[in-house]
């Protein structure tokens, strides 16, 4: 449908105003929230993600697209609740205890939301138990941990242990990322996956939750 194509294209342009206008127009036309979400907002972000991965556009373009997506999503949210629209899945993310760095974590959150996942961002300096409690309470099946410092990396192991101690594996999986990390470290602490950037985080979460592209 042309209006939803325009909505997707407005995201590619990073045009928040146009994204809001198209979303409003689609709602007024009576289109189902699920369709507006899938064929407009998520479709637009999928193109943005592909172009970013191919180096055709840069990170600022992705962030502008995400901003435009939020402009549409803000209008769509009440309708989604009303129509009980399901997201692709919930992901709890945060920077581990003792670490205040959040740029990488925020990028991952933006990418995940752009791909249609519901992101519960706990911010920075988050205690291990808080991650686990939130995941259980919200029914999230993935916890994403971020750390920038070698001194805070060990906290990730504590989160994995907390999940194990409460008998939540393999229902809840822990994925990790951050500049000092590696796949080897992730394996060593028992994490389910290491994600080296926002795009790889989206791909990993999709795979884990069985979401088709």
């Amino acid at each position: 449908m042309k209006l939803l194509e325009e909505l997707a294209q407005s995201l590619e342009r990073g045009d928040s105003q146009a994204a809001a206008d198209s979303t409003r127009g689609a709602i007024e036309l009576g289109l189902p929230a699920q369709r507006i979400l899938d064929d407009g907002l998520i479709a637009g972000m999928a193109v943005v993600g592909r172009r970013f991965k191919a180096h055709e556009i840069f990170l600022p373009d992705v962030l502008l697209a995400a901003k435009a997506m939020y402009a549409g999503l803000a209008l769509l949210k009440p309708l989604m609740i009303e129509q009980a629209v399901a997201t692709q899945g919930k992901v709890v993310i945060g920077t581990v205890q003792g670490d205040l760095h959040d740029i990488g974590k925020n990028l991952v959150g933006i990418m995940l939301e752009g791909a249609g996942f519901e992101v519960l961002d706990l911010g920075t300096d988050v205690a291990p138990e808080t991650f686990v409690d939130t995941a259980v309470r919200e029914g999230a099946r993935i916890i994403g941990l971020s750390a920038l410092l070698t001194t805070t990396m060990p906290v990730m192991r504590k989160v994995v242990e907390a999940v194990e101690k409460r008998g939540l594996r393999p229902e809840i999986r822990v994925i990790v990322g951050g500049a000092p990390l590696s796949a080897a470290y992730a394996a060593e602490i028992g994490a389910s996956a290491y994600c080296f950037d926002g795009i790889s985080a989206v791909e990993t979460v999709r795979e884990m939750l069985g979401v088709e592209r």
Binding site: S182, A183, Y194, F196, D197, S200
Partner: peptide
Amino acid sequence: ANLARWAE
């Protein structure tokens, strides 16, 4: 790319 992406 970072090492992991380069490897991938």
